[in-house]
Write a protein that binds this DNA or RNA. Sequence first.
DNA 1: GATACAATGATTGAATACAATATTTTATTT
DNA 2: AAATAAAATATTGTATTCAATCATTGTATC
Lengths: 230, 230
Amino acid sequence: MYKSSTRSFPVYDSLRKAIIEQALKPGVKLPEDSIGETFSVSRTTVRNALVRLDAEGLVDLQPNRGASVADPTIEEAHDIFEMRQCLEREVMQRLCKMDSKPIVKALKAHLAEEQKYLDVDTTRSIRLAGEFHILLAELTGSKILANYVNEIVSRCSLVLARFAQAHSAQCGLEEHTEIIEAIAAGDADRAASQMHTHLHSVQDRALLNPEDEEKDNVSNILARYVTPDS
Amino acid sequence: MYKSSTRSFPVYDSLRKAIIEQALKPGVKLPEDSIGETFSVSRTTVRNALVRLDAEGLVDLQPNRGASVADPTIEEAHDIFEMRQCLEREVMQRLCKMDSKPIVKALKAHLAEEQKYLDVDTTRSIRLAGEFHILLAELTGSKILANYVNEIVSRCSLVLARFAQAHSAQCGLEEHTEIIEAIAAGDADRAASQMHTHLHSVQDRALLNPEDEEKDNVSNILARYVTPDS
DNA sequence: GATACAATGATTGAATACAATATTTTATTT
DNA sequence: AAATAAAATATTGTATTCAATCATTGTATC
């Protein structure tokens, strides 16, 4: 996966996780100095991580202005979800052409994990839900496809962080179950349509409310505290 | 596209072009020092370019062992072509849902360019053939899809460099024409199947001959000069 | 003659240092 | 007080430096 230098990997990995888990929200500045201090590495090392994250679309790197967490527009958001539909449809079609037994076994094991932490550890639960989709892609045996799915799933997290109400858009566990069943039955059409519905429900909850909300910058936050003159 | 530092862009861009045009063949080492001298920049700058190319899959970066032009295995080669089929099918489907007029106009203009340099400037001709596919993706209006197609087309060039006989695998111009016609007719199924056939013909010419040839390293070359003891 | 070990040279890993560019603050003017 | 200009500060761009690792050659030992 990430083959580059030893020291920049932890930086890359932590930033990535923080962005996906929405601890670092879209638009937040990522100064090389402070990140370097946090990880006790030099800016050179931080920069490597940032260049890579920029290439993956999670970070936005602008000349002489440094890095910030990518802040997709509503158009890009739709684009990203559409791309995800395309890639995961491909995953479904490939999986249904394969021997379903080992695939279903692996998926059920993952589902058990998901169930275990549901309502117990929210952060972990959300992460596992995302990893279900990555597992699906990996089970196709295509590293390239798995990489693309991994990337697009991450970018979807970013989109949700930007546009969705808190907790409004999680994967439904029942839907994962249904997808597994369709694969077990070897029914490519049903699997693809289940997946489509599943992703669409996530997307809808996130993007249908057309309110392209303003960011929580200082003035917007303060605006809510202005006392109306009575 | 590439937003990062001014000085590393030319390095990135030149390396990329050299790899796509097969001037730099798969497996060739890319030492930071000598590349830096070539472009009169420091290793820091070169390294940035290499990290990015690694993220795009054109370069292979291994810890403490530096960079080399990516050298896909035959399995990865098939994977890459399969992925390309998936992405370009998506392009076809999207284009056929749109207003065909401006799309067909742009495509015909490009085709004229292709025709102009056919049998005149081979390098340019090959480049234009690749750019036809990238133009198709751009015309969908989705930057994300266009980026993915751009990337996968580049990686296909790499695959061809590795496995195809010289000049054996170029895009056929007539096939491009037929694709345009299908789009003009708004026939998504036909467009997708034309594209599938087109890509398959390129792939076949490249990958069907199962000889996974050895590389021209010193020992392989010398092996041919060993005088048999008589 | 083959293998293991040691020394050398070459190449990469990563921090520091300095230059260039943005951003913010302060000062000045209207 | 508002707008502009200038200075100061902070941040990024890139080269240089030193340390760490790898590859190769040479040497010794079995």
